[in-house]
Simulated scan of single mutants.
Amino acid sequence: MWLSFGWLGLFGITFLSATLLPFSSEVVLLLFLSEGFDPLTALFVATLGNSLGGATNYYIGAWGSAKLQKRFGSENKRKAQWESYVQRYGTYTAWLAWAPFIGDFIMLLLGIVRANKYWSFTYMTLGKFLRYYVVIFVYENW
């Protein structure tokens, strides 16, 4: 189904898989490659879609944080724990935003504590780019 939409289909599935919806963007990427789509273009389209999905998680976290503060006040213990985690490990954790299961929540967490957007998005995008690069490299050289 996604193939019929071409590059827009790859962009859409990689975007959705970076949100909290359970999709496997790697499987779809491999499907596109097996159908003869250009690997370099696929690398950039998948990275862009998945990174924008990760940024969406960040902004959902930031929006949710404001709502929680209004409801529970600024003394929310859980938020204080997360802020401590980010202070300890920094925005470097965004490198792991590509990881299954935890990656979506890392960006959500970074948004909740309002971590530096520039570094969060930079590290996230580099991590996602490297993941897709490895998938394509293994596929092309297998």
Rank of each mutant, 00 (worst) to 15 (best):
L10A: 03
F11D: 00
G6Y: 10
K70E: 08
L33T: 03
K67W: 15
T122R: 05
N116H: 13
D38P: 05
F121P: 02
T122F: 06
F11V: 00
N116E: 07
V113I: 14
T91H: 14
R88Q: 14
K79T: 13
F5I: 11
W98D: 09
E35Y: 08
S120I: 07
S74D: 13
G61Q: 03
G127E: 04
L48H: 01
L33N: 01
A62M: 15
V86C: 08
S24A: 13
G36R: 09
T56I: 14
L110G: 11
W2F: 10
K117R: 12
F11M: 01
G54D: 15
G6W: 11
V28R: 03
A42T: 01
F5G: 07
S84M: 08
T91D: 09
L43M: 05
Y58R: 12
A55M: 15
L109S: 11
I13N: 05
S24K: 12
M1I: 06
L16I: 13
Y59L: 06
G73H: 08
S84I: 07
L30H: 08
F5S: 04
Q69L: 08
F37Q: 01
L16V: 02
V45E: 02
L30F: 14
A66M: 12
K77A: 12
I112A: 12
A115E: 06
F11R: 00
T125Q: 03
R114S: 15
V134E: 04
Y59W: 15
Q69R: 14
G61L: 09
E83N: 13
F11K: 00
A55E: 04
I106A: 12
V27P: 12
W63S: 05
L40P: 00
Q87F: 09
V138H: 03
K128Q: 06
L52G: 03
T47Y: 00
L33Q: 03
N141R: 03
W142K: 06
L43A: 02
I102M: 13
F129R: 00
N116W: 13
F137C: 09
T47I: 01
G90K: 04
G111Y: 06
I13A: 05
V86I: 12
N76V: 07
Y139M: 10
S4P: 06
L48G: 04
Y59F: 13
Y89A: 10
I136D: 02
S84Y: 12
W119P: 08
A18G: 04
L10S: 05
F15A: 01
E26N: 05
F32M: 04
R78W: 10
W2A: 00
W2Y: 07
G54W: 15
L68S: 15
G6M: 13
M107N: 14
